[in-house]
Write a protein that binds this DNA or RNA. Structure first.
Length: 564
RNA sequence: GCGCCUGUAGCUCAGUUGGAUAGAGCAACGGACUUCUAAUCCGUAGGUCGCAGGUUCGAAUCCUGCCAGGCGCGCCA
């Protein structure tokens, strides 16, 4: 049984009231049919349409063979309100039934926020199911850049949200430490080593051009000395490759940690080869109805049989496996580890890859519905509205580390989550560093700091117990109080949606809305007054707001400062 | 040519899976600090929701077809 919080609770109550009214209206002959559609209660956009509204009369029109407004009247006149929460019911527009709730009902919901505290808003939709989310997974051939930062922010936040909603979440980073790229990395470092030792070498264009390669080469020489050159080039390149990959990986871990992102598992692609998983998978599929077959001297996967637009090569003519080959083994391996659902966070430029991975999963006997890809659109980096040149090939780019140093973790994470992943994002370093209204992270954090400040100023007892012995319902019933309380009640639905749709930006937008409502309240109402009962009631409301701000920010991976 | 994403106020974007009069921030204009933090607030102005059809009580939202921009269509990763 899922515990209902916030508006869910009230909606459920109204549903039952309407159901009852429908039945008694039918029994009294006011309605022609006993069957009715599922009752939907929604919150109208404008207060003049009540606190809650139902469209049940309009949706029932064809069943009842009556005009919507007539049905609405029949329902309204048969309503019994045992708990006495409804002030009045109105029929409006094409047949909406609008409910107006007694103003002293609302404050009662604050108790939910306070008793649930850090768990307020959590809905157990995961029910302990194992779910894996893989993100960032950048090749260890160069530093992380802003695009990776966005993927990291989205992946980590989705992981937080799912864990909050009852999933058993594992966060994983897939290390592409096998294949040609790593070979190229080794070669690049090796050539720079020789250069540093006085040789004049030709440095090919397909090698990694960035300065970080020289830094790594220097460290290789420091550690290995001239002995590096005593072995064959092939071996030396291997040494350089392993050394460089480990170093870059260490840097990535450090950068991600300072970005507030940690992983439960760093999964090596090479380990799939070492354990024979890739060979095994290929062999298995070759023996099964030509899922993998030979053509033109290469091995192909029959992905088109599973909805891909054409078949894909897994082993090339030259005998080398493709990236896809290890990905088949990898995703099969994920499901074998017992995850009920597997999520990959990818850059949107890889979207064409989805059908073939889904095909591989389906061929492996797992329903592809258990696999979900979150595509994250590209980030363009700006400084004061002017695009910052980002040339990967030339090795000139602003790294994630640079961004963090310049704007800080909180601002960076928040900004990455101010847009739906479907939209491209302009990340302006100048704006992100500003502590102004342009930069909403401070707007939201400021709410937390302000409330902390008020609480500090009040020389009272523990804030959460502040209203235990007073009647908040008679003290918190102004329009300002109620609209703030209603917003807090909306939070669980925001969490549910952001979990189900895996869209953390919904939380970001909600927090900005709540912050705006708070700041308005703060400017109109005084919290600390001469009337101690009123003061404590308002503190009760304020600390509830603070709790929700803190809960939301923590899901985004942003801190909630006590002072600013 | 095919596939995916996007198109909403001058700019950047939300829009609770179909609800009533489409919202917010920035920019513009006009106001509010002897006050619990002005990193704040209040007000004004700003729209053929890319275009055209369709579905129904009702469409920014769903369907079809166009238009524009971005990304992708390797025996690369």
């Amino acid at each position: 049984m899922i515990h209902l919080t916030g508006h869910h609770c009230m909606k459920q109550k109204l549903k039952q009231i309407i159901e009852q009214a429908l039945h008694s209206a039918y029994e009294n002959g006011a309605l022609s049919s006993e069957s009715f559609p599922e009752i939907v209660i929604e919150i109208p956009k404008t207060v003049s349409h009540g606190d809650y509204a139902s469209n049940v009369a309009m949706v029932s029109a064809s069943i009842q063979k009556m005009a919507p407004r007539k049905i609405a009247e029949a329902i309204a006149s048969h309503i019994t309100d045992a708990d006495n929460v409804i002030e009045r019911v109105e029929i409006a527009g094409p047949g909406f039934i609008n409910f107006y709730i007694r103003s002293n009902t609302w404050a009662g919901f604050l108790k939910e926020v306070h008793t649930q505290g850090g768990r307020y808003g959590a809905i157990n939709i995961g029910q302990g199911r194992k779910i894996q989310i893989e993100f960032v997974s950048s090749n260890p051939t160069g530093p992380l850049h802003v695009g990776h930062g966005r993927g990291a922010a989205v992946g980590d936040s989705v992981a937080n949200i799912l864990a909050f909603c009852g999933y058993d979440v594992q966060k994983e980073y897939y290390i592409n430490d096998s294949g040609r790229q790593i070979q190229t990395l080794g070669r690049s470092v090796f050539l720079r080593c020789r250069e540093l030792m006085g040789e004049s070498v030709f440095f090919p264009e397909d090698c990694y051009q960035g300065d970080y390669i020289r830094d790594i080469a220097r460290q290789v020489i420091d550690q290995q000395g001239a002995s590096l050159m005593d072995q064959s080039d092939e071996k030396a390149i291997m040494v350089c490759a392993r050394f460089a990959a480990a170093l870059i990986l260490d840097d990535m871990k450090r950068d991600l940690e300072s970005f507030g992102v940690t992983f439960d598992c760093w999964f090596s692609e090479q380990s799939l080869y070492d354990a024979g998983n890739v060979v095994d998978v290929i062999e298995t599929y070759r023996n099964r109805n030509d899922i993998i077959y030979e053509k033109d001297g290469a091995l192909w996967f029959n992905t088109s049989a599973y909805g891909d637009e054409k078949d894909r090569v897994v082993v090339r003519q030259n005998g080398q496996t493709t990236y896809f080959a290890s990905d088949i083994a990898y995703h099969y391996h994920k499901f074998e580890r017992g995850f009920e659902q597997v999520i990959d966070v990818w850059g949107a430029d890889h979207h064409g890859y989805i059908p073939r991975v889904a095909a591989a999963i389906e061929a492996g006997g797992y329903n592809k519905d258990r696999f979900h890809v979150i595509l994250v659109q590209l980030v363009s980096l700006l400084r004061g509205g002017v695009p910052v040149a980002m040339s990967t090939r030339a090795g000139e780019f602003v790294t994630l580390k640079d961004v963090l140093q310049e704007v800080g973790k909180d601002a960076a994470r928040f900004i990455f989550l101010t847009r739906s992943s479907d939209n491209t994002l302009d990340f302006d370093l100048e704006v992100a560093a500003q502590k102004t209204n342009d930069n909403p992270v401070y707007y939201v954090q400021y709410v937390h700091a302000r409330i902390c400040s008020i609480v500090r100023k009040y020389t009272g007892t523990m804030a959460t117990n502040i209203a235990d012995d007073i009647d908040t319902s008679s003290l918190l019933n102004t329009p300002d109080d109620i609209s703030l309380i209603k917003l807090l009640m909306k939070y669980p639905e925001i969490i549910r949606l952001s979990a189900e749709l895996m869209e953390p930006h919904r939380i970001t937008f909600f927090l900005m809305e709540l912050a705006s409502a708070f700041h308005g309240y703060y400017n109109r109402q005084r919290v600390l007054t001469d009337d101690d009962c009123l003061t404590r009631a308002r503190l009760y409301l304020m600390t509830a707001v603070r709790q929700v701000i803190a809960n939301g920010l923590s899901l985004l991976g942003v801190t909630a400062p006590e002072s600013m």
